[in-house]
C-alpha cells in the first residue's frame, strides 16, 4: 500500500457526475444536527457545503469556518445524499494555502517534515523517555519480565504513537503496553519516525499527508510488520 492509494479515496466527483460533490446537497440539516461544532463561532456544515455548492472553495479555505471542523466525520456518515463533507473541507483547507493553516498545526507540520515527529523530539530523547517508562512498568507486580520491543523485526503489530503519549501523558503508555503484554501480542515500537498523528489530514496538504503515511508505511516495510496499531 502506498499513499497514492490512500489519497485516491478522496474522489470528489459527485454522484450525479457533475463534478462538484456538494451540488447534490438537499439542505436537509442532517450534518448540522450531527456536528459537534454546529453553533460554535457560527459554524455549520451547511454553510460549508453551500459555499462548496456555489464553487466558493477558496473563500471557504480562507475563512475560519474551514478550520473549526474537527474532522470527526459524523456529518459525512449521516448525509443521506452521500456528500463527502469532510473530504471537501480538507480540499478547501489545502486551497487556502500554507498561510491559512493555523499556527499550532503549521508548526507541527514543519517539525514533522524536518524531524519525523510533530514535537521535533530527537530520537535519543524519545528512546530515553520510553525506556524510562518501560523500566517503571517492570516494577509493577506481574510485569517484572516486560521488555520494550523497539525496532523488533517481524513483529505482528507496528505500534505508532500519538505525540501526546510521549510528551505529556506518558503514564498512558503503560496501559497500552500492559494490555499488549498480557495478551502475549507480538509487537514493536519504531525507534525513530514513530509519529502516528498525521496533521496533513487536518491541514489538507496532500504532500504532508503523503509524508505521514509514507513514514508509517516505511516503518512497516522496514520492520516487516503485518499490522498497524495506533492508540488515540
Amino acid at each position: 500500500m502506498n499513499s497514492t492509494e490512500v489519497l485516491s479515496h478522496t474522489d470528489l466527483s459527485g454522484p450525479g457526475g457533475g463534478g462538484n460533490p456538494a451540488q447534490i446537497c438537499l439542505g436537509c440539516g442532517t450534518c448540522a444536527s450531527a456536528c459537534p461544532m454546529t453553533g460554535i463561532e457560527g459554524f455549520d456544515p451547511r454553510r460549508i457545503v453551500r459555499l462548496g455548492q456555489l464553487g466558493r472553495f477558496e473563500e471557504l479555505g480562507e475563512s475560519s469556518l474551514a478550520w473549526l471542523c474537527t474532522m470527526c466525520g459524523r456529518c459525512q456518515e449521516g448525509c443521506p445524499m452521500d456528500v463527502r463533507i469532510t473530504d471537501m473541507i480538507r480540499e478547501a483547507r489545502d486551497l487556502g494555502g500554507e498561510k491559512t493553516v493555523p499556527q499550532a498545526i503549521g508548526k507541527g507540520i514543519e517539525m514533522f517534515m524536518e524531524t519525523g515527529n510533530n514535537l521535533g523530539l530527537p530520537d535519543e530523547d524519545f528512546g530515553f523517555i520510553v525506556e524510562d517508562v518501560a523500566e517503571e512498568l517492570t516494577e509493577e507486580p506481574g510485569f517484572e519480565d516486560f521488555v520494550l520491543p523497539v525496532d523488533k523485526e517481524d513483529a505482528r503489530l507496528l505500534f505508532t504513537l500519538h505525540n501526546k503519549l510521549v510528551n505529556t501523558q506518558n503514564e498512558d503508555l503503560k496501559h497500552w503496553w500492559k494490555i499488549l503484554h498480557a495478551a502475549g501480542e507480538s509487537w514493536t515500537l519504531p525507534g525513530s519516525r514513530w509519529e502516528g498523528v498525521n496533521w496533513g489530514f487536518f491541514s489538507g496538504q496532500d504532500q504532508v499527508l503523503k509524508a505521514g503515511v509514507d513514514t508509517i508505511v516505511g516503518n512497516m516495510e522496514r520492520l516487516r510488520s503485518r499490522g498497524l496499531m495506533y492508540p488515540e
Binding site: 438537499l26 436537509c28 440539516g29 442532517t30 450534518c31 448540522a32 444536527s33 450531527a34 456536528c35 454546529t38 453553533g39 457560527g42 459554524f43 455549520d44 451547511r46 454553510r47 459524523r74 449521516g78 443521506p80
Partner: peptide
Amino acid sequence: RPHSIEQVPEEQILRIPHAPSPGNQ
C-alpha cells in the same frame, strides 16, 4: 432532518439534537 435520536441516560427521554437554522444547534 435530524441525524439521530439519543436516549438520555437515567431519564426516560428521547433527545433530538437538530439545527433549525444555520449555526444554531
